[in-house]
């Protein structure tokens, strides 16, 4: 026994090294889990406050861009509202039938305080948290398209998994043909994302619009993701290799909207029940 202690003591540096490395490895693996309410990330109070202050200084340099963007958004929303009103008037629809379906989604506006695009696993920190009703798993969009999902929340801040994260997959479809696939980032170019699992018999074209499919109840259906930039089909592959140019420039995120899906629990539970019956 004494020899054992002596042995451990003699190589104490190595054993400490091993211990710390194992602990780090455990942290890395643990952090890769999709959803979590964790303390040690940029949504914790001290870290978020530091980042917020830094961001509020940086913001002055992009105020002009943000203003233009918000004005454009206002204009397009107003136009949509007018169109909608006209349609309703034409049909003579005074009262909408199913309130639950109409109010499926609520939108919570939030400001981006931390963002990266050049790592393999990019995360975004925003300034809304549990206090505003955010929960892990909610979708986040902007005017120009899909952004990501909420990963973890603290009382006033949350961390999002960006679309630019090699672990993140979003169910999507080609708007023109209606075929479903999955978008996933390959880790290289922050302007381009891959569309996978589009079978051979479909003929996607350069310029086709890619939108979210609404299959997973996280994203509302039809949120813009991007436009096809390049289509390749190799001899032996069962799927097309499609590069999609993102409609949202992730380097310029300023304001985003968190989508609160009121019927998500219902859709999920129905799906789980169905799967249970099949087994």
């Amino acid at each position: 026994m004494e020899r054992l202690f002596k042995f451990v003591y003699k190589y104490r540096a190595f054993f400490t090294f091993l211990l710390l490395e194992l602990f780090c490895a455990w942290l890395v693996v643990e952090n890769n889990q999709y959803q979590s309410t964790r303390y040690f990330n940029s949504s914790n109070q001290i870290a978020a406050n530091i980042i917020s202050t830094s961001q509020s200084i940086k913001e002055y340099f992009s105020l002009r861009d943000i203003n233009t963007q918000l004005a454009n958004e206002n204009a397009s929303l107003r136009k949509k509202l007018d169109d909608r009103n006209q349609v309703i008037e034409e049909i003579g629809l005074s009262q909408l039938k199913n309130v639950a379906i109409v109010n499926r989604f609520e939108y919570i506006s939030a400001k981006v305080i931390n963002n990266s695009t050049s790592q393999y696993k990019n995360f975004i920190t925003i300034n809304k948290g549990i206090d505003s009703g955010l929960q892990p798993g909610m979708a986040v969009i902007s005017v120009q398209g899909a952004i990501g999902k909420v990963k973890s929340v603290s009382s006033h801040h949350s961390v999002l998994i960006s679309l630019l994260n090699i672990d993140d997959q979003v169910s999507s479809k080609i708007k023109r043909t209606g075929h479903f696939g999955t978008v996933q980032w390959d880790g290289t170019d922050p302007r381009v994302i891959d569309l996978r699992y589009i079978p051979r018999h479909v003929s996607p074209l350069v310029g086709d619009t890619i939108v979210t499919s609404g299959y997973n109840a996280v994203f509302p259906e039809g949120i813009l993701i991007g436009i096809i930039k390049e289509v390749k089909l190799s001899e032996e592959s069962p799927f097309h290799q499609i590069k999609v140019e993102l409609s949202q420039d992730f380097g310029k995120l300023a304001f985003v909207e968190v989508v609160k899906s009121n019927l998500k629990a219902e859709q999920d539970s129905v799906e789980v029940i169905t799967k249970g019956i099949q087994k």
């Binding site: 090294f17 602990f23 890395v28 952090n31 964790r38 040690f40 940029s42 530091i50």
Partner: peptide, 26 residues
């Protein structure tokens, strides 16, 4: 190693990559 771990861990909190920088720095 202890200093390396603490510094790496601090950096990780801001990079949202828990354990990654700590591991490399150790």
């Amino acid at each position: 190693m202890l200093a390396g771990f603490l510094l790496g861990f601090t950096i990780d909190i801001f990079y949202d990559s828990l354990g990654l920088h700590a591991m490399a720095l150790v």
